[in-house]
Every structure is written in C-alpha cells, then in structure tokens.
C-alpha cells in the first residue's frame, strides 16, 4: 500500500512515479513530488518505483500570483 496525497493506493505490478503521474494525467511541468518527505528530482520520476509504505505527496501548481 502506498499513500498518495493522503489516499491509500495499491498496485498490482511495480509502478514508477512517472507511470502513476501519466496515468492520472498530471502535467509534469507543473508539479513537485515528495517521497517520504524528500523531493523526487524530475529526472528520477521514471526510475523511482513506488514501494510498500511510501508516502507520496504530489503538489500541482495552478496559475496566479
């Protein structure tokens, strides 16, 4: 079980952060991803596999300032 933005999510096969982002239509240029309290560099999205117990926070930025 992985906690993503406060929701428990389970995966039937090994899934990278990148695959999860694409599947859920996140726009990679507008987000920041934290894994267990640490930033995940953009270059690592497609190589970081979500592991049981991971706590993921995906922050999406909207326009305006």
């Amino acid at each position: 079980m992985v906690i993503i933005n406060g929701n428990a999510v389970s995966f039937s096969k090994p899934t990278t952060i990148g695959a999860y982002l694409d599947e859920n239509q996140y726009r990679r240029q507008r987000i920041a991803v934290e894994k267990n309290g640490e930033i995940v560099p953009r270059a690592a999205y497609d190589t970081t596999i979500l592991a049981d117990g991971d706590k993921i926070e995906i922050v999406s930025f909207v326009g305006g300032g």
Partner: peptide, 21 residues
C-alpha cells in the same frame, strides 16, 4: 515563491528543494 506562471512555480520549487534542502 510568488510567481504567477504555474511552470515557473514548479521549476523554482523543484530546483530549490533539490539544491537547497
């Protein structure tokens, strides 16, 4: 971070957290 463009916001946030944790 006080930008208006969402991509500029995300770029700054990612780079700051990576370079200056």
């Amino acid at each position: 971070e006080a930008f208006d463009d969402p991509e500029a916001k995300a770029l700054l946030v990612n780079r700051i957290l990576e370079n200056f944790p």
